[in-house]
């Protein structure tokens, strides 16, 4: 099921979009990921991931308001769709389930 499979980087990008919701576009997503994960990210990787997420229907984009910063040009703002949110929650649930399945003896 290629459509619903979420890659690791895609998950990170999707999370970043959710964090920056309302102000999520290429540059802010890059900054967010770099800050949170403390590693450098390529803009191209982010855009291509956003593209893929868009095709899977996990994010939508629309033209946002103009900013003086960007020379009066409007920018494309991304937001997480309901399906995107469900995908994130599912991943989290699966992780939680897995955490809970770890026998406590392992850590001691």
């Amino acid at each position: 099921m290629k459509g619903t499979y979420l890659g690791e980087f895609e998950e990170v990008v999707l999370l970043a979009v959710a964090i920056r919701s309302g102000d999520a576009y290429g540059a802010t997503v890059v900054t967010e990921i770099e800050q949170q994960m403390n590693r450098s990210v390529n803009l191209g990787a982010v855009h291509s991931a956003l593209n893929r997420l868009g095709e899977k229907g996990l994010v939508t984009s629309e033209l946002g308001g103009m900013t003086a910063e960007r020379g009066g040009r409007s920018k494309r703002l991304y937001s997480v769709t309901a399906a995107g949110r469900r995908a994130l929650q599912e991943i989290r649930q699966v992780r939680n389930q897995m955490w809970e399945s770890i026998p406590t003896t392992v850590w001691t």
Binding site: Y25, A27, V30, T31, L43, R70, G71, R73, K75
Partner: peptide, 9 residues
């Protein structure tokens, strides 16, 4: 759009 992103970063 891409140029703007590059610029900002």
């Amino acid at each position: 759009e891409l140029e703007d992103d590059l610029d900002e970063l």
